[in-house]
Design a protein around this nucleic acid. Structure first.
Lengths: 340, 340
DNA sequence: AAGAATATGAGGTACGTAAATCAGAAATTT
DNA sequence: AAATTTCTGATTTACGTACCTCATATTCTT
């Protein structure tokens, strides 16, 4: 039979109250007694029954998710996943609030965080803009005992407890590998479009891509990176002019959002189709993959990210350790053949 | 506040006992009353608190995993994951038994299943051999009210409730895509090694691979498939002779186990390295990826599979529906750049 | 209409933990 | 040695559900 708190008490020769004090780090236990209890816990292999504990605590974890209200499908999916998690809240004893803030708007984000500082939940997950004002607020939350997680895009250095998102340098390298191998030994130019190089994740992807492509396909000429602000129209315009200016363009990597523009530009190309690689699986990119317009999609699963963030926030709120390996978000590669 | 059974009782104007009878399908409730209660449940949006329910039931789910005792790293990993899940059992209220049976041994598997029929757990997960004797036993278990899941390798048609594993046809196509694209427009031969074509998953992979490679790279000459019985030594021998017999061999796909033999054979090749694709990430294949010996690894995550199987078995044991989308096992593609 | 059968109500205990109270013991200070 | 502070024990209630018993109400049989 699974050992219970009563077994600890008996085993350590103390009362239930003392066991409770030790288990829940309440004061009023001499060091010697505490050790006796902990030793008994180890000896009989007691594991707290989380279900019963939560039931007794009737604890709910108040969590807040701060996510930009961009209309790109990835952020949309992220918000949808939060909404889903919100519905599951009753079962998981979470009370989740979704706070949508204007995208790229540092002031609005800062304001949202200030509101959270005034009325702090147990944990906060933020798709952060890497700016001092934001970092300062993250640290303030952290110091107030709030569990803090950055989502998708990390801060350079911050009071965050954890980053939930992919390794964007590795993602860029992966894109570089695929581009290089798909192009094989062909010679020509490759265009790269970023949303904004002020975003840490976009910078990392660019770095990784350039490095790896250089290693694997030195004959390729990498065009200067273009910035789209994640705007599909701009992506399309930039690409169209690039195709015009560089007739030998044989590859495109869109490392940001705005894939609608990528697909539009690719549809218009004539002659041999360029190799196209982009990020984030959506109905649009899925169809483009199936149609052969796009050759590979790198993806981070928004559902995984939200669920991981929730697990981490709950664990941190309880002062429990996080199993890093379990919370690593994978870089998925999708071809038309392994679509989920 | 989350509604409880008491709220249902009040709302439906019945006693707690009646609510309990309705919730747990106990007899002794008139149809009209039952409807009143169910209507109240819907109206107030009651969701049973699973944690409290399990606590009250002090229910544990007795589950059995039947897995071949092959020494290849994937089956090893699968068994390790079961062992891990076993340790978590106290928390998740599962009592998991791992039954290792000799690989490829139909009689031993049948015997193991017979033992389970005599002393049926709540759920069984089996890495099944596709044979009538096995199917019959699966159906017998199913009819005895045991939740039944096939693991990794599915049966053609069976009384199973669910298949936990990847779509192997899609996996084969994915391998075909990668092989075709990595080889680009080169001409030459590609070798395929299977474990045994009597295994459904290996057959599917082969079919997918051949189809897709034919579509994408018609200039490639596909050598006749070789069978290794998942034995590394045989894989190596087969490959060595293939390299000798076909000097234009530019690609290898090992769709079964025995990657140690693949790596050994690849290490000995001279001249331009062939494109190599294999299944299952392990320390060995990981290193081969990093060293550039292997170009891509397709992977199914054993941890995901075991956890998914447990979720499905628990849900089935409770008569709850399974969210198919959530239980789909993905085909992971790993290059040296996106290793986890 | 009496008896039998079936529905329902009322109330309790249990699951394993949290959290509180209060009394008494032990250690520390004065 | 007395007063104070710090530990510890004993006991209780609560969380939401399951499951049991017993009593009473309602319906069905004959």
């Amino acid at each position: 039979m699974k050992p219970t708190v009563h077994d600890i008490a008996r085993e350590a020769g103390v009362s239930l109250a003392t066991v409770d004090r030790v288990l829940n780090r309440r004061p009023g236990v001499r060091a010697a007694t505490r050790e006796r209890v902990e030793e008994a816990i180890d000896r009989i292999g007691f594991v707290r029954d989380v279900a019963a504990a939560n039931l007794a605590k009737s604890r709910t974890y108040a969590l807040a998710f701060v996510i930009p209200e961009s209309d790109n499908s990835f952020m949309q999916a992220l918000r949808d996943e939060v909404a889903d998690a919100r519905l599951r809240g009753a079962l998981e004893r979470t009370d989740i609030r979704l706070i949508a803030v204007p995208a790229f708007d540092e002031a609005a984000l800062a304001q949202a965080l200030d509101a959270l500082i005034d009325n702090p939940p147990a944990g906060v997950a933020v798709v952060a803009i890497d700016a001092p004002a934001i970092q300062a607020r993250m640290e303030r939350l952290h110091e107030a005992g709030v569990a803090v997680v950055t989502l998708v895009s990390d801060l350079a250095a911050s009071g965050r407890d954890h980053f939930t998102g992919i390794d964007n340098l590795a993602a860029g390298r992966t894109a570089g590998s695929l581009m290089g191998r798909f192009l094989s030994s062909r010679a020509g130019a490759v265009a790269v479009i970023a949303g904004s190089l002020r975003l840490g994740d976009h910078r990392d992807r660019l770095t990784g891509f350039s490095e790896r492509l250089g290693e694997i396909a030195p004959t390729i000429r990498l065009l200067e990176v273009m910035e789209s602000q994640d705007d599909p129209a701009r992506v399309e315009a930039l690409l169209n002019s690039a195709f015009r200016d560089h007739p030998d363009m044989i590859g495109v990597y869109n490392l940001g959002a705005g894939n609608r523009g990528l697909v539009a530009a690719l549809t218009q190309t004539t002659g041999e189709a360029p190799v196209a690689i982009a990020h984030e699986l959506s109905p649009l990119t899925r169809k483009a993959l199936e149609d052969g317009l796009i050759d590979a999609i790198l993806n981070q699963d928004p559902g995984h990210e939200i669920r991981s963030a929730i697990r981490v926030l709950k664990a941190r709120a309880d002062g429990l350790p996080v199993i890093a390996a379990q919370e690593r978000i994978r870089i998925d590669i999708f071809l038309k053949d392994n679509l989920p």
